[in-house]
Write a protein that binds this DNA or RNA. Structure first.
Length: 423
DNA sequence: TCTCCGATTAGAC
DNA sequence: CTAACGGTCTAATCGGAGA
């Protein structure tokens, strides 16, 4: 028996960060609103009003100062605690609508809705419920592959007539081809700027042209990823849903500073902080790392200042997830590469060569004994009383490097002390 | 020639 | 008042080194 066609849904929150801010500020509805990246640097989320003004994704705030002033655009720093909490609420509701869910990003989720009766109506019900219970508007795209579901979501977002739901599986071949002919290739999942340019050079501009191109020659020229994309566009599901997120192979924690720093003590403080965060993530996925890389760098946008961007890789004698052990190595690495006389703007740590913690447990011939119990206590106390309740001594006594975050909204859903009427 | 490595590229959000 | 531009993560690919 031929397997029935898959129905994969992609639910994507509309202008997610902006929508989160609006949930608690009804006065922001119909107003132009943007949310900024870390350090209040670039635009990462825009309301429709802002998109209509022609303000592009990713532009630095200082380049649009005039427009912001002129149109009274409301500006917010990123409030990740709020966005993560709102995301969890949305995802928990979506999970009820299908046996299989992949949480793809903070604002997107795939659901396998194959075989579900009356999918269009279910999708509408899902949208209404998410909006009612969380205040977040979402759109639903459906197709027989993940790539088609993504594309359908794009169509749903772009055409108000679709009422927020678009399903390729409900279309005749002729109708689908008409849609494909009207969507440029750069909207396809996996086709970025470079590929768009390269495809254009061989006469491929629309999704329909890509879908009907010769797979063998595309693969030869662009590789396996492109072949999968084309097959998916033809309706063949090549990329499966992944319910469990696999353990990370690499954990990076780094930040640009609010201001440049010149003292080694400031870098030490920042690195201690980054190591703590990275090691915490490592422990959260029950892993250890065998390689620690540490880097510091000057401001690459200042061509009037001398640049220095060293990094040091420290192979660890025994894989570890201990914040204290890792901090020790990070401090030595910093001492080895620090040169006075530069204005440092960014630093970070990378943990890699990651293995499960069970792999090295019981290694009685290892070097100095470690402190898994101490780390466990640290993590438990911080989980219970809030991040940053308990820290190691190196971490965060200097604040000179802290990122700029001048327009952050309250953590409405997770912190009593930040609620306006509790102050 | 094959394989393994690190570095680079490309893409996503 | 001034200066001002994110952070993580993965997979594929490429070129060189070594077997």
């Amino acid at each position: 028996m031929r397997p029935s066609v898959r129905s994969i849904a992609l639910i994507d929150c509309n202008n997610f960060y902006v929508s989160c801010e609006r949930v608690f500020r009804l006065d922001l509805n119909n107003q132009p609103v943007i949310v900024l990246s870390n350090n209040d640097g670039c635009v990462v989320s825009r309301s429709n009003e802002v998109k209509a003004l022609g303000i592009k994704m990713g532009v630095p705030l200082f380049k649009i100062r005039d427009q912001v002033q002129q149109h009274n655009v409301q500006v917010f720093s990123s409030n990740y605690v709020l966005y993560a909490d709102m995301s969890n609420r949305v995802m928990a509701i979506l999970r009820e609508y299908a046996p299989l869910q992949e949480v793809y990003s903070i604002d997107e989720s795939f659901l396998d809705m194959t075989g579900i009766h009356d999918i269009g109506q279910r999708a509408q019900a899902m949208r209404e419920r998410v909006l009612r219970e969380t205040g977040i508007p979402v759109c639903v795209g459906i197709g027989s592959s993940k790539t088609l579901a993504k594309l359908a979501n794009f169509v749903a977002k772009r055409h108000p007539k679709s009422q927020g739901v678009f399903n390729f599986n409900m279309l005749t071949t002729r109708q689908a081809e008409s849609v494909f002919s009207n969507v440029p290739v750069e909207e396809v999942w996996g086709i970025g700027r470079q590929l768009t340019k390269a495809l254009d050079a061989i006469g491929i501009q629309t999704v329909q042209q890509l879908r009907t191109a010769d797979i063998a020659s595309l693969r030869k020229r662009f590789g396996v990823a492109m072949e999968k994309t084309v097959r998916e566009l033809r309706g063949e599901a090549c990329i499966e849903l992944e319910e469990a997120t696999p353990a990370k192979q690499q954990i990076i924690n780094s930040r640009s500073f609010g201001q440049s720093v010149t003292e080694i003590e400031d870098l030490q403080d920042a690195l201690a902080h980054f190591v703590s965060n990275a090691a915490h993530k490592l422990r959260a996925q029950q892993s250890c790392a065998a390689l620690l890389q540490v880097f510091i760098m000057t401001d690459r946008f200042r061509d009037d200042q001398s640049q220095y961007c060293p990094s040091v890789a420290v192979p660890l004698p025994v894989p570890t997830a201990s914040s204290t052990t890792l901090q020790g190595y990070a401090v030595s690495a910093l001492a080895a590469m620090f040169r006075p006389g530069y204005r440092y703007k960014k630093a970070g740590v990378i943990l890699s060569e990651i293995c499960p913690e069970t792999l090295h447990q019981g290694d009685m011939f290892a070097g100095a004994p470690e402190d898994p119990a101490l780390m466990l206590a640290l993590d438990q106390i911080n989980a219970r009383f809030g991040k940053g309740t308990l820290k190691l001594s190196q971490d965060g006594s200097r604040r000179s490097w802290q990122m700029r975050q001048e327009r952050k909204s309250p953590e409405y859903t997770t912190n009593w002390h930040e609620l306006p009427f509790c102050r």
